[in-house]
C-alpha cells in the first residue's frame, strides 16, 4: 500500500518546483467536519460479511490487491448510508439479507461451497434481472460503488493512474506513447 505523508508531499513539491515559497505548517489546519447520517440503521456482522464477500467477487484479490483489501466495503457502506434515499437503502438491505438463500436456490449450492465462476455467474444473473428487479438494482448499485471505491483508492490512483495532486505543468499536445 502506497502511503504519502502530506507533510512530505508538500515539502517535496515545495522543494521541487517552488524555490523560495513560504512553507506552511499544515498541522494548524482544522480537520474538516464530515456529516454522519443519522437515518441509516447499523450494519449487522452478518450483513457486513455478506457485503464483503459480494464485493470480493466483483473485484477479487490476486497479486494485485482487490476491492476488499483496499477498504472498498467501508466506502460502500458510507455511500449507501449517506448518499442514497432511505427506500433505496432498504431495498439494498433486503437483497443483502436474502443473498445467501437467493444464491443457494439459483446455484443449488451454498455460497461457501461455490467457486468464483459460480459466484460470478450468479452476479451476472442478478445484473440481468434474472433474480428479480430489486436484486438487479442492488447489483447495479454495488458494482458502481465498488468500481468507484476501487478506482479512487490511493493504491490504484497512485500506482496505476499516476495520480499527482499538483502536476505543475501542462502540455496541450503531448505525443501518445505507443505501447
Amino acid at each position: 500500500m502506497t502511503t504519502i505523508s502530506r507533510r512530505e508531499w508538500v515539502k517535496g513539491m515545495t522543494l521541487a518546483t517552488l524555490g523560495t515559497v513560504a512553507f506552511y505548517d499544515l498541522s494548524a489546519q482544522a480537520k474538516p467536519n464530515f456529516p454522519v447520517s443519522k437515518k441509516a440503521p447499523a450494519w449487522t456482522a452478518k450483513q457486513e460479511q455478506i457485503l464483503n464477500e459480494w464485493i470480493g467477487v466483483i473485484i477479487p484479490e490476486s497479486s494485485i490487491p482487490g476491492a476488499v483489501s483496499l477498504g472498498v466495503p467501508k466506502f460502500v457502506k458510507t455511500m449507501l448510508d449517506d448518499c442514497y434515499e432511505l427506500s433505496a437503502q432498504e431495498t439494498f438491505r433486503q437483497v443483502l439479507d436474502a443473498f445467501p438463500s437467493s444464491f443457494e436456490s439459483y446455484v443449488k449450492k451454498a455460497w461457501s461451497q461455490a467457486n468464483q465462476a459460480e459466484k460470478e455467474e450468479f452476479l451476472f444473473a442478478m445484473a440481468k434481472g434474472n433474480v428479480g428487479s430489486g436484486a438487479q438494482k442492488a447489483m447495479s448499485t454495488l458494482k458502481g460503488l465498488t468500481i468507484q471505491g476501487y478506482t479512487t483508492s490511493e493504491e490504484i490512483m497512485v500506482k496505476y493512474y499516476n495520480y499527482v495532486m499538483a502536476p505543475g505543468f501542462f502540455n496541450g499536445c503531448a505525443p501518445v506513447k505507443k505501447s
Binding site: R6, W9, V10, L26, Q29, P32, F34, F75, T78, M79, D82, C83, Q148, G149, T152, S153, E154, M157, Y163, M165
Partner: peptide
C-alpha cells in the same frame, strides 16, 4: 486543500 480523492468519505 491538501486532501487526496480517497480521503473524502463520499469522494
Amino acid at each position: 486543500t491538501l486532501m487526496s480523492p480517497w480521503e473524502f468519505p463520499h469522494r
